[in-house]
Design a binder for these strands. Structure first.
Lengths: 194, 194
DNA sequence: GTTCCATCTGGAACTGAGTACCACTTTAGT
DNA sequence: ACTAAAGTGGTACTCAGTTCCAGATGGAAC
């Protein structure tokens, strides 16, 4: 099916993949801060300029694969709407389902998950960026909840609470990907058991 | 009383204040991105090198006055401990008190609050840094709760939930400083009502 | 006041991220 | 095959942030 794409598009995808691959190789060899964009471009056999055409900045390459993932979960969440305006509890039930599915997904490729986690925990700038990504994702959930007719307060609060559970779970699970799912469950349990 | 400090220390404080003052003046005149560190240093009548001695990077100067503030609220929170291990509900009651006090404090200087808010909302990098500051603050609250004997889950979850309420309130209050306090109250209400 | 040390200062030179511009190549459509 | 559009990579630039150093300055001792 990727055969069906126009040549130009295939080339673009290939270049993009090369850059991501080169970047993660280099990040594995030495720390994020010690790898320059020029290094990445050279290994990917691409001009430095081209790197910045594909990724807005050096940090973006670390999150290259996540955009599609996050969008698909926004869709998942939208599909969970019942048509009636959700209360906070209902909204949290929906979010719990979505967050758990997300955990399963991101921990399925353990190597990538760990490499990513290491980068993010060791570099404050990447941690910041990661948080921004999550916040952006939460915003799309806010929009979903508004469409479902939730009150402003519920629509804004629920995703923030879901995020809080997820971040809590991340902190408690540390670098054990198998513990993440249970930790998320525990956090939501604690939260919804009044 | 500042008269009593050694000359060297007074000079340091004065230089610091000059830099912050110069920076905020410039940020008011043109956007954050259009102000260079050299600009700030020149107006503050200080060498560029000196700027970086006082502030780790350009972003730090935006948050110059907040460190002491946040520390004082950590102390406030610590003083609220009852000696018995808190449940989630109790932890949230403590946090609600602290967050409300913080709201009163930061909105008391309306001009500064609005200038700061504008900077943070218009510059993603500053929004990131702001979030990092809040997260660091939350971590000290985690430590407090642990000392009080809270379970790991409660100790980590409660501050995240408090943060979620605060961020929700910020979002709902927009740039109206008088609305912030009530919005925080509403968020905590919604959260703790059964 | 003089001497001496620790600290502070700001200039110069450097690295690396990110941007703007431009000439060159490659793809797509006719 | 021809042309327009899109993609490429090189050069040169600005600015953040670091390192190094020589000179100034405050504090303490005598």
């Amino acid at each position: 099916m990727s055969e069906r794409l126009p040549l130009r598009e295939r080339k673009r995808q290939r270049a993009r993949e090369q850059i991501v691959k080169a970047a993660f190789e280099l990040f594995a060899e030495r720390s994020y801060g010690e790898v320059t964009v020029t290094d990445i471009a050279e290994r990917a056999q691409v001009g430095r300029t081209t790197f910045f055409r594909y990724f807005g900045d050096k940090q973006e390459v670390v999150f290259a694969d996540e955009q599609a993932l996050l969008r698909s979960f926004a869709d998942h969440h939208r599909a969970l709407g019942t048509g009636t305006p959700p209360t906070l509890d209902e909204a949290l039930r929906q979010l719990r389902t979505v967050v758990l599915a997300m955990c399963d997904e991101i921990t399925s490729d353990t190597d990538y998950y760990l490499a990513h986690l290491r980068l993010v925990t060791e570099n404050p700038e990447l941690a910041d960026r990661n948080t921004r990504k999550l916040a952006g994702y939460a915003d799309t959930l806010v929009a979903n909840l508004r469409e479902q007719g939730a009150s402003d307060l519920v629509a804004v609060l629920a995703p923030q609470l879901g995020l809080a559970c997820y971040r809590t779970a991340q902190q408690l699970a540390g670098d054990d990907p198998t513990a993440l799912r249970d930790a998320v469950d525990a956090a939501f349990d604690q939260l919804t058991r009044h």
